[in-house]
Amino acid sequence: MRNVFAFLAGGLFGAGLLISGMTDTTKVQGWLDIFGDWDPTLAFVLGGAILPMAIAWRFAMGRVPALGGAFPAKPEAKLGHNLVLGSLLFGAGWGLAGLCPGPAMASLTWGGMGGLVFMAAMIAGMLAAPPVRVWVDGIAASS
């Protein structure tokens, strides 16, 4: 049952990404390009996505998930260098190609060879992340 609902959530997420225009790299780069021909679409996407989720978080208070278990606890408000550095690196790559992980997966079957290359590079980056984290932590500890 968990897998059925996971599939449905993934499918709805993918459909939303496609319909909203998030799988179109020109729209994403158009939103990030504040000095060019700025495209405000992404503000509507993000706003539209946050609204139902904010209601869901309110609803979740004092309840448990429908299929059992517990809701994820709110993470400690601890920032740290990995959060900042990681977000900067992610943002740089996001601007460069106009793809983030969700749309990269949603466009996998119809995004052509470039999309497959992006996916492979992203997976390679994910595999490289743990040693990079150790290295960054070492620098942070010694400075």
Binding site: G86, L89, W94, A97, A104, A124, G125, V132
Partner: peptide, 11 residues
Amino acid sequence: AGLLVGIGTRL
């Protein structure tokens, strides 16, 4: 871009 997104999101 793929490498940056992969490393960055995991960090």
